[in-house]
Amino acid sequence: MNKRLIWGLGIALLVAALFSPLASSNPDGLERVAEDQGFLHEGEGKPVINSPIPDYMIPGIKNESLATAAAGIAGTALTFGIMCGLGKLAKRQSSVVNQSSAKDHLDRSI
């Protein structure tokens, strides 16, 4: 991986570790509208699936800032890994398709 991309990943991890604990805890735009217009409760039932790290805090870490920073680092690394994995998979599939179409072409020309 290119040096500048490593810098980019480093910056992403820094943002996750240092800035996420400082994030505003105010409701976001949609939550604020839901609260003001009285439909916020519609979304407050039991979650449909149980996530391992709800609300971006690693369970079991008492200090909220640390729990958030740890969740941020884990999530950022996980996202990088999954995105690269998916990208490689897509690349490999497309090269398999290219090879087989090249083979078809070869077969036909023979």
């Binding site: 290119n2 910056i11 991890l13 943002v15 950022t76 996202t79 990208g87």
Partner: peptide, 13 residues
């Protein structure tokens, strides 16, 4: 592919 990985990671963060 790695550029997409870095972009996804930055956006997540």
């Amino acid at each position: 592919v790695p550029a997409m990985g870095v972009m996804a990671a930055f956006i997540f963060a």
